[in-house]
Design a protein around this nucleic acid. Structure first.
Lengths: 353, 353
DNA sequence: AAAGTCATTCAAAGCGCTTTGAATTGTATT
DNA sequence: AATACAATTCAAAGCGCTTTGAATGACTTT
C-alpha cells in the first residue's frame, strides 16, 4: 500500500493525500478526515526511505559507542543511557542508530556517518579530556550533543553533564565532616573527563581543609568489582590505611565492600564507603533505603536530556551551543559513619573525664 | 558530491559510474579504476537513503529492546550483546537500529517497524515461554532470529541459544559430585525461557540421583545483587540451609557471596556457589583464574552469531529456519568445594579408624 | 563483405515520497 | 455581471540512486 495506491483508492491526488496526512493547512477538513480513515483502514504507513530521500531528513540519531580496544569493555551505563534516549526518540518518531566502533577508529566512523547522511545528529559518549572528536564534529557540521564535557576543548559545543566536580567535592566534605582524614579515591579511567572532574572535586574539598591528597590513596581504572576489591585490599595493607573510600561506581563500591569485609571490617562502623550511583536499572543501591551513601544521578535521565536537546538542535537548526548541568543528590545510607579513630579519641576523652 | 556530479566530472553516465563502484562485471577495468580514484579523491559517498529507496533494501537490522514496565529494568546483557552484533553489522555495511519498547507494547512496535520498512530483519531479545512475538513475526514475514528459544511455540523459527538446560544440569551434577544434596537455585524471572530451561536442567540432574528439588530452595526474580543477597540470607536462616547455591548471573552470585560472608561463611570451604557467567565486559569473573566456579558462555559471541545468522537469512531470502546451539563451558574457580557436612563425616570416619 | 558476438557504455524509467507552481472551484467584492 | 480572492486540489518535477533495455563499436566468424 503506497501513497499512490491510497490516493487512487480515494480518488485524490498523491499531493493532497500527502498533505492531509502531514497536517498541512491547505486541505479541507472533511477530506483530511476521509484520508486519515482510509489510511487507518488500509494500514498505510509511508515508506521511511522514500520519505527520507524526499525530505532530506534521516529521522534518525546516531550513537557511536566506542569499545576500548585494550579492555574490550562495553561501558555498562550505555544500556540505561540508551533506554532514556530511546524513549525520547520514539516519541518524536526518530530512530536510534548504533554504531559500535573500536576506540582507535572513531574519526573514520564519524566521517563515514557524516557522508552516508543516514542520521540527522550524533550523540557523543564518554568524552576524554581534550577529546578530538569535538573539533572533528564541529568541522563536519553535523549537529551533536556530548554526554559529558571535555576539559581543555576551547571550541564551544553542546553538552549535558552531571556536576561531577561538585558531587565529589560534597561527598568528600561529607566524609571530612565525619572526621575522616585518610580518604581513598577509587576513580574511573584517568583520561576520561568525568574521572578528572571527580578527582578535582575530591582534591578541592581536601584543600578546603588544608589537606593534600595522598597519591597512595588514589587509584584509577575500569570501574569493576575487581577494581574495588583490589584497591581495598592494597590500601588496607598500608601502614596507615584509609578510614573512608570514595568510589566512582556501585560495582567498585561492591568490590571495596568485599575487600573490607574480608578484612573483618564492618561498613559504616569501621570504615566508610561513599560511591557515585548512576541509578542503573539492574544495579540498584537498595530499594527504599540506600545501602551505600551515594552521590546519585540517573544516567537514564541524562539520556533523556541529551536526546531532547539534540532533537531541539536538529529541529531548529540553530547552531548556538546549549548546555545543561545536572546536580547529583547526596543520599545517606548505611555505609558511612564517623571516623573510628576519631571516635576512639572521643571515647578516650570521655573516659578521662 | 552526488553520483551525477561524479559522472559529469568523469564524462561518463551515472549508470556506468554506479556499476563501476558496485563491482558489476560489464565495466572496463580501466574505467573502473578511473572511477574508483575519482570517488576517492572527491570523497564521494553514495547517499544512503537514495540507495535504500532504489534497492528496496534498508541495509539495517532492527533490535527491539523491551523494557519491563514493572521494574523499569534494562537487561544488563544487552550492551554486550549489541557490541557483538554491532561488529558483524559494521563489517557487512549494515546499520543497527534500536527501538526501546515498554514490554506491554511490543506487538505495535513490531508492526510499525514492519510497515515503515526501515529494517531488513529483526533480532528478537529475551523470549518468554509461549512468546507471541514469534507467531507475529512469522505472520509479518520479516526475517528474524531469536536470541534464545520459546518453549511451547510450535511454529518453526530461527534461533541461537545457549544450551541452558545442559549447562545447569552439568553444574548441578558437579555440585552433587562434591557431595552436596541441599542445593539452592537462584534463578532469573520465571516467565523467561532461559530461566525455565535452567530450572529444568537443575531438576533433571537432581532427579538423576533420585532427589527432588526443594521449593524452599528455589527463588526466581531479576538477577541483581540484591536478589542474591536476599536469597542467601533467607535460605541460611532455614532449619536446614543449603550447602551450595546455583545462581543465574554473576551479580546474583555476588549478592549470595555477600549474604554468606555476613553469616561468617567462607566460599568454597563452608558453602559452594556456582554461577552462570555471561562474560560481560564490565563484570568479569576474575582475570586469569575464575573467582566463581561457573558455566561460562559469552553473550557477546552470541550477539555475533545471531547477527551473522540474520544477515545470512536476509541475504539469501531463504525462509528455512536455522538454529544454533552453543554449549557453555564449566570452569572451576574458588567458590566450590566438597560438601562440608560430608567432609565432617569423612573426618570423623578417619578419626575412628 | 555480411552477419553475428562480445565488451562497453548510455538514456530513461522507476523506487515512494514531498513540494512547487498552476488549475479549479466557490464565494465575496465592486 | 465582472472581478478579486480565498480555499482546495492537482500535475509534474525532484530527491540520488539502481536497473532495464537499447545503442555503439570493435572483433570474429562465415
Amino acid at each position: 500500500m503506497t501513497l499512490k495506491d491510497l490516493a487512487t483508492l480515494l480518488g485524490l491526488s498523491p499531493t493532497t493525500v500527502s498533505r492531509a496526512l502531514n497536517g498541512y493547512p491547505e486541505v479541507n477538513e472533511a477530506t483530511r478526515k476521509r484520508v486519515a480513515e482510509a489510511a487507518q483502514r488500509y494500514n498505510y504507513r509511508p515508506n521511511t526511505q522514500a520519505k527520507r530521500l524526499a525530505t532530506g531528513r534521516a529521522m534518525a540519531i546516531g550513537h557511536v559507542i566506542p569499545i576500548s580496544t585494550q579492555h574490550e569493555i562495553v561501558n555498562p551505563v550505555f544500556a540505561d543511557f540508551l533506554a532514556g534516549a530511546g524513549e525520547v526518540y520514539a516519541r518524536a518518531g526518530y530512530d536510534m542508530v548504533l554504531t559500535i566502533v573500536p576506540d582507535d577508529d572513531e574519526e573514520r566512523a564519524y566521517r563515514e556517518i557524516r557522508s552516508k547522511r543516514n542520521v540527522d545528529g550524533i550523540l557523543v559518549h564518554a568524552p576524554k579530556a581534550h577529546d578530538p572528536r569535538i573539533a572533528l564534529l564541529n568541522d563536519l557540521g553535523l549537529p551533536f550533543v556530548v554526554h559529558g564535557r571535555a576539559s581543555g576543548v576551547r571550541a564551544p559545543y553542546s553538552w549535558v553533564d552531571v556536576n561531577n566536580t561538585r558531587a565529589f567535592e560534597r561527598a568528600t566534605e561529607f566524609l571530612l565532616d565525619l572526621g575522616h582524614r585518610r580518604i581513598a579515591l577509587v576513580n574511573g579511567i584517568d583520561g576520561m573527563d568525568f574521572a578528572l572532574r571527580r578527582r578535582r572535586g575530591f582534591e578541592r574539598a581536601l584543600a578546603g581543609r588544608g589537606l593534600a591528597a595522598d597519591p597512595a590513596l588514589i587509584v584509577a581504572g575500569e570501574m569493576t568489582e575487581a577494581q574495588g576489591h583490589a584497591a581495598a585490599r592494597a590500601m588496607q595493607a598500608l601502614a596507615d590505611p584509609p578510614t573512608a573510600y570514595l568510589t566512582a561506581s556501585l560495582l567498585s563500591a561492591m568490590g571495596v565492600r568485599r575487600g573490607l569485609e574480608e578484612a573483618g571490617l564492618k561498613l559504616g562502623r569501621d570504615v566508610s564507603v561513599l560511591t557515585h550511583d548512576d541509578e542503573l536499572g539492574y544495579l540498584k543501591n537498595g530499594e527504599q533505603e540506600p545501602i551505600f551513601t551515594a552521590t546519585r544521578s540517573s544516567v537514564r535521565e541524562a539520556g533523556r536530556r541529551c536526546a531532547a536537546m539534540l532533537l531541539r538542535k536538529v529541529a531548529s537548526g540553530d547552531p548556538t551551543p546549549q548546555t545543561e548541568l545536572l546536580e547529583a543528590v547526596l543520599v545517606v545510607g548505611q555505609s558511612t559513619g564517623p571516623c573510628r579513630a576519631l571516635h576512639r579519641q572521643n571515647e578516650h576523652a570521655a573516659e578521662t573525664l
